[in-house]
Design a protein around this nucleic acid. Sequence first.
DNA 1: AGTCGTCCTCGGCCGC
DNA 2: TGCGGCCGAGGACGAC
Length: 264
Amino acid sequence: MPEILEVERYRALAEKALHRPITKVWMIDARYGRGGTTPVRLRAALVGRQFTEARRRGKLMLLDIEEGPTFGVRFGMTGGLVVDGQQALDRLRYGPGVFEDKWVRARVQFADGGALQLHDPRRFGSLELAPDEQRLGPDALMATLADVRSALGTSTRAGPVAPLKARLMDQERIAGVGNLLADEIFWRAGLDPGRRTPLDDDELRTLHRALRSTLRLLDRRGGSHMGDLMEERQPGGHCPRDGAELLHAQVGGRTTYWCPVHQH
DNA sequence: AGTCGTCCTCGGCCGC
DNA sequence: TGCGGCCGAGGACGAC
């Protein structure tokens, strides 16, 4: 599914859509809009104008519009981007892996005949004009040790503390890490995703390093699903590092796999 | 603040 | 063997 690495590829592809006058906008599925974004409003914001910049924060892609609100796109679980018939990725895990016109949720037509299309079979994605970018935490690809510390560091508040994984996946704390990346990062860091006790300074440094190196490595390999843990991420799977049978449970509401031997 | 249920569709697996 | 039907996967958000 599109996590931060995939959305960054979408953003790069979207640069091909910049500075091209928009002539038509189809928002085929009205329910695809969020925060009051309707087909009529989207058309009013886009037709006759052009995109000026392709940005990203976490998993949110942002296309600035000349003299207008920013166009925000969330890709959910199976969302894909197509510009002039070119797809950013060959196929997505958990998606049907093929392109069909009936799954196109919106289409932006350019005066030169090309088009930008948003394709989303399972429809978990959404479109939003002027999305609140400030609600998102610092971008995971840019996150500093200080960012990781403030997002996952010692909680001094009384009451329940969310497990580590829920905090890493909370887009308001750090933006961009999804379920598969989270499992891979904790596996590489040797940290138990369900842990609720505070991290010491060494552990925070280890987690920060694992975040950076995992993103870099998986990007080189081709995406979020290219982690070492991926193949074993099923009942009965074993730890690629020490051979122990992996444990699995719901952590922070998400299916989670981890190694009982080296993750603490 | 944290947790749970909801949205949506497809693939995989169950049992007849 | 074949097929109908059910469940679970994922990200984000609203409700408790």
